[in-house]
Amino acid sequence: MTITEILFWLLTVVALTGALLVVTSKNPVYSVLALIATFFAISGHYILLNAQFLAVVNLIVYAGAIMVLFLFVIMLMNLNTETEPQKNKWLKMAGTVAGGCLLLVLVAALRDADSKSTIALVNSGDTGLIENLGKLLFNEYVIPFEISSVLFLSAMVGAVVLGKKE
């Protein structure tokens, strides 16, 4: 095993443990913290693939901004295990079945995908470097990029409209 492989397995274990803790922990604040740990592990995977920009942006946007808002909401609502209403037994069952169906579809879709034969460029690829990414985004994909920015703008306007007191 090389250092890269050891790091890969370490990060995988952290990511999966974190993801499991998000679902299983009773305290919602712990869930959010576990999700942050998962994001860190995924960023580590990006760095192993030499996609530094993606790794850092994942941390800034998801772990740094969105999770803070999650924490805000959870802390202000003061969700405790005592106050949380008990869900209906049948609802839990239906949830399990629906989740199982989703898993089945995902596995089936991934089984036939051609990603099996694609080898990830570990440590040497340069598509994830910020210079190449920027050139690609602003030359080849400039129209989808601009359209997605309009989408964000509309979301922002919507938030302002909703938040405004009349």
Binding site: I36, Q52, V56, V57, I60, A63, G64, L71
Partner: peptide
């Protein structure tokens, strides 16, 4: 690293958690 400034921003946004 060639993303030095972004790294600093990532660390900065982590600083919120200590307080929260």
């Amino acid at each position: 690293i060639n993303i030095g400034i972004l790294y600093i921003f990532a660390v900065l946004s982590m600083g919120v958690y200590g307080i929260m």
